[in-house]
């Protein structure tokens, strides 16, 4: 049973890592908008721009 003298301190180190990771996630605002993340997967990120490249001129003119 003496293995617990090695395994338990190891578990404690892992515990500290887990708490650290969780604190970092909470502090960097990752839990602030849960609704939005739930939907992110649905969107097709690859569909992007083919035409967007053609039109930047007209958009820039509007901006001026």
């Amino acid at each position: 049973m003496d293995v617990i003298y090695f395994l338990i301190p190891l578990a404690l180190i892992l515990l500290i890592c887990a708490i650290g990771a969780f604190m970092w996630a909470a502090k960097s605002g990752q839990f602030e908008d849960l609704d939005r993340e739930a939907h992110r997967i649905l969107f097709d990120e690859d569909m992007k721009p083919n035409q967007a490249k053609e039109k930047p001129d007209s958009q820039n003119q509007e901006n001026q």
């Binding site: 939907h39 649905l42 969107f43 097709d44 569909m47 992007k48 721009p49 083919n50 035409q51 967007a52 039109k55």
Partner: peptide, 10 residues
């Protein structure tokens, strides 16, 4: 034009 049509799907 910006290729964001999937907005209408979701």
């Amino acid at each position: 034009d910006a290729g964001m049509e999937s907005y209408y799907q979701h």
